[in-house]
Design a protein around this nucleic acid. Structure first.
Lengths: 195, 195
DNA sequence: CAGGGTTCTTGCCAATTGGCAAGTGCGTTC
DNA sequence: GAACGCACTTGCCAATTGGCAAGAACCCTG
């Protein structure tokens, strides 16, 4: 069982930890595999999945008042995949998390996260850093919705995550960007002319 | 020094803690007062302010690419006021936090937060709960930007926080809702006709 | 390779929102 | 109380985005 990707990831976010601590933390995770279209989490359940994704793409989505699917997040390699509110507050999830491709990674439960959280100071730091990063990312997205045009948001996404476009449907990307698939299609046409 | 508001707040978010633990945590905070228009944080600095607001209203704001002011957050009574990214990641803040009214509350520094975080298990839980709540709130806001109209977002805000409208300028509220002051003015006109 | 389903694109028109500039209302100051 | 500044409103028009429906492109599956 090669946990190097996991260890590397924790270390990147926690340079101060020594090798033994890192492997101790990593040992608490279980290897986990999803096939394309498998669900990591379904709405209506309380999430018990803290998943570190080493290979593949996933997305989180929910439904709006008119029952339209809205993609709330995409996840790629080397990211922690979880529904923060449901996992930490033990509330029923309003979101689904599904594999866009075959996926591979490492899983840990709420109970184990808590155990590590209280017994390993370095893991506390790691957990907090994760949460702060995710928070900052969401804040940036809210800000982008406010002060950037749909075209700018599209440009940002394709430049930062071109590979995503090979795995996600344009309709999913559109709802993530806060526009309809029709508008996204038009933006892509304009974009193709210039760039 | 009556720290009851602070103790009550911590207890609400941490029902398991006993009285002694609560007073020990509260003892680490310092009373702090701001006059209207005073800044709690200025962009360009690394935030060292974790502020529990017991009375008054505050707002956080930044500037977009065209140098327009964008209000990113409003804070009322019984809320923790801080710039999460700057405070926890020790990065330079892109945001200002300013008092909309005279304010009163309790302050704690990054160093003391960390001390408590590692030495008091109950405070770890408290800190994590705060962060998770703030995260969930921002996520809800992003979602609202995507699948609600400007009018619905306005209705939500005025119903959940009517008092805010007595202290913040409509232009500030408009940028928080992701629209111009012109549009907000029109929405309010329509709204007044119906409701 | 024919048929059927899904995704994506396009055209047309409507609704929402923005930009600008002028106007109104209100409080402050001298 | 006249003059000024500031916040807010309004009118006019333009730009952006959405809704709908039809068509094109593509992929399965038999």
């Amino acid at each position: 069982m090669d946990r190097e990707p996991l260890i590397q990831f924790i270390q990147t976010n926690l340079p101060a930890a020594n090798r033994q601590t890192l492997t101790d933390i990593a040992a608490q995770f279980d290897e986990y595999v999803l096939l394309k279209n498998d669900y990591l989490l379904r709405a209506g359940r309380v999430s018990d999945e803290y998943f570190f994704l080493t290979d593949g793409f996933m997305r989180a989505f929910t439904f709006d008042a008119d029952n339209n699917e809205v993609t709330t997040n995409f996840f790629g390699k080397d990211r922690v995949v979880l529904e923060v509110a449901s996992f930490f507050m033990r509330t029923v999830s309003t979101e689904h998390i599904q594999a866009l491709t075959d996926c591979r990674g490492y899983m840990i439960t709420f109970e184990t996260v808590n155990k590590l959280f209280h017994s390993v100071p370095e893991f506390r730091e790691f957990g907090r850093t994760m949460l702060v990063r995710e928070y900052a990312t969401f804040k940036q997205r809210t800000l982008a919705m406010i002060n950037k045009t749909a075209e700018e948001r599209y440009a940002d996404l394709i430049h930062s995550n071109r590979e995503l476009f090979q795995h996600a449907q344009l309709k999913q990307i559109a709802s993530y960007l806060g526009i309809t698939d029709t508008s996204l299609s038009r933006i892509r046409r304009e974009f193709a002319r210039k760039d």
